[in-house]
Design a binder for these strands. Structure first.
Lengths: 325, 325
DNA sequence: CTAGGTGCAAATAATTTGCAGAGGC
DNA sequence: GCCTCTGCAAATTATTTGCACCTAG
């Protein structure tokens, strides 16, 4: 919750400013990857030969309490430490050959973990997912075409990709819904939303291109945030269902469901992360979806008031489409 | 691969029969749960005060090599050991309060792990999924209504549940397909398959009831194998798609896809486990699905030969159903 | 007889702690 | 001056190893 890289804010139990501690923390933060206590001692000793191992251990513990560092266990019989002010709760791929590890996020796995915990009435606090095996480099002998790159950029890239896919599927959904809707006011709502999606889509694409300029290889770097819904966008299923034939009320209701799902997803992810571009993207998008959601709920209520509740779906496919032309 | 509880077969490097080792192994196998080396030393010493800690460590290592035990790391700074001759590659829920842990399988998580590994070109050998938190008992203070029960029975129960759900959805699929199919020979294939599914379904249900007799609380024990496809059966999606309108060839092809998915799932799971009722259920079922699959492929080829390849779907829903009556 | 199994004590390895002195507020 | 930080050395914990002895094949 706290713990920006801004160190002035890091005073967990009102500790004193201390040159040694600050030195250790700085060296730790300058590194990336997963350091063992011993790695850190070595690094520190290059700068200052007079810092004891005990102090490093104590400072590591302090950093964990302060939320700067997280203790991770890769089953080596000792702990390692990683930065924790970005992307909490990520998972690891660990190469048993070169002992390097790379990180990833998977909202899909997280969702399953939540479901399983709930099914077992278990209050999950945190979870560890570690995939052990051999990395590409160790297997093929040659360096991978591109390295992982900076986490913040990757996270922002994947956030934008998901947002764009969602926007695209939303555009498809609203365009299709507008075509199928008979009620004039309802149709206008869908038309307006479609226009809004289109505009926002181009904004997101611009933003994505800006991101690419900051790192020319960004697009070819490996996926960091795995999320299955990303492939076709969160409205894809809804858009498909529209074709099965629904009445105006049902179309609005499906819009509500899609927006709600989308809002929840973006909010949940956005809230989890420390200040970063990706977080911002998620939260902005969540807010937009919330607005759409509220609009749709209002319209749904208004329509039900005008028509009474209608449950029967419109006949399949073609007739409705024809009627709209 | 080896490692039945039958200890006579456990001679990894041609070790000698030794009273001490046998004693230690027996005590270990008599326990369930996750023992630390120290726990085991305590248990051993109750029987024989003259066994040294070093021997216990050496025997644990021997058991790991022999495949009797698996070393697990719950981040406590020491290792624990669990039996490994059943359900390899399970995952853990770990209570940080009472330090007990319970096991589960999730083919859904496994599938995601495989996908992620593939996306990162990582050759995954094994994976660790640990959910840390507070168990129901520690949270509410009272004992859970039912305990976990014996793993073998749970695994068999969940295997049967999945098989039954698949059988039900298969029955639905073939019944529907038979109704929609115009080609006489094709219709007969579906009718026969539907009849077979019905018969096998009742067999599975009988078997399930027999299982319940062995443990009256079995049905209320928590899920052990989590698999989302289990809810509606592996043919559910196919059965739904049939309603959208398909021609005879497409119906056969969908049957092929469903049977292939089902066959793969049951085979994969069945092969992973040591001899147990659950394994047997999975493998029997996989074999049945393979037979159906082969039959459908034959029929598909025959139909294409008779009709030429037809790609256009039949018109939506009602007309096809009408035609079949 | 001999390779492998066993006990004991000592070694290792990661980490923690007691204590006396140093340093910031 | 007080309280916390720090270094050093000793302690602790989990596990491994060297070595002499024992035991089954």
């Amino acid at each position: 919750m706290t713990t920006l890289p801004d160190l002035t804010r890091l005073k967990p139990t009102g500790g004193k400013r201390s040159s040694k501690r600050e030195q250790i923390v700085n060296v730790f933060l300058r590194q990336e990857g997963h350091l063992s206590a011993d790695d850190l001692v070595d690094l520190i000793r290059r700068e200052d030969h007079r810092i004891s191992r005990a102090t490093v251990y104590r400072t590591l513990q302090w950093m964990v309490d302060a939320g700067i560092a997280r203790k991770v266990d890769f089953g080596e019989g000792r702990f390692r430490f990683e930065h924790s002010y970005r992307q909490p709760r990520h998972f690891h791929l660990i190469c048993t050959n070169c002992h390097r590890s790379s990180e990833f996020l998977s909202s899909d796995i997280e969702a399953l973990i939540e479901e399983i915990s709930a099914a077992r009435s278990f209050a999950a606090a945190q979870s560890v997912v570690q995939i052990y095996g051999t990395c590409e480099e160790c297997r093929t002998g040659r360096h991978p075409a591109v390295d992982e790159g900076h986490k913040d950029l990757l996270f922002a890239r994947d956030a934008l990709r998901i947002a764009i896919a969602t926007e695209r599927s939303g555009l498809e959904f609203y365009t299709r819904a507008a075509r199928l809707t008979r009620d004039g006011r309802g149709r206008k709502v869908f038309d307006d939303l479609a226009a809004e999606e289109k505009e926002h889509l181009s904004k997101l694409e611009t933003r994505y291109n800006e991101l690419l300029q900051r790192d020319p290889q960004l697009e070819s770097r490996p996926t960091f945030l795995f999320f299955k819904g990303a492939a076709n966008g969160l409205f894809a299923e809804g858009a498909e269902r529209l074709l099965k034939g629904v009445n105006d009320q049902q179309a609005l209701m499906m819009g509500i469901r899609c927006e709600r799902g989308s809002h929840r997803f973006f909010k949940k992810y956005g809230e989890r992360f420390e200040d970063s571009e990706g977080k911002q993207i998620f939260l902005e998008f969540a807010d937009e979806e919330r607005q759409h959601l509220e609009l749709l709920i209002r319209e749904y209520r208004a329509l039900v008031k005008r028509q009474g509740r209608v449950r029967r779906p419109r006949r399949h496919g073609a007739p409705a489409a024809r009627a709209a032309r």
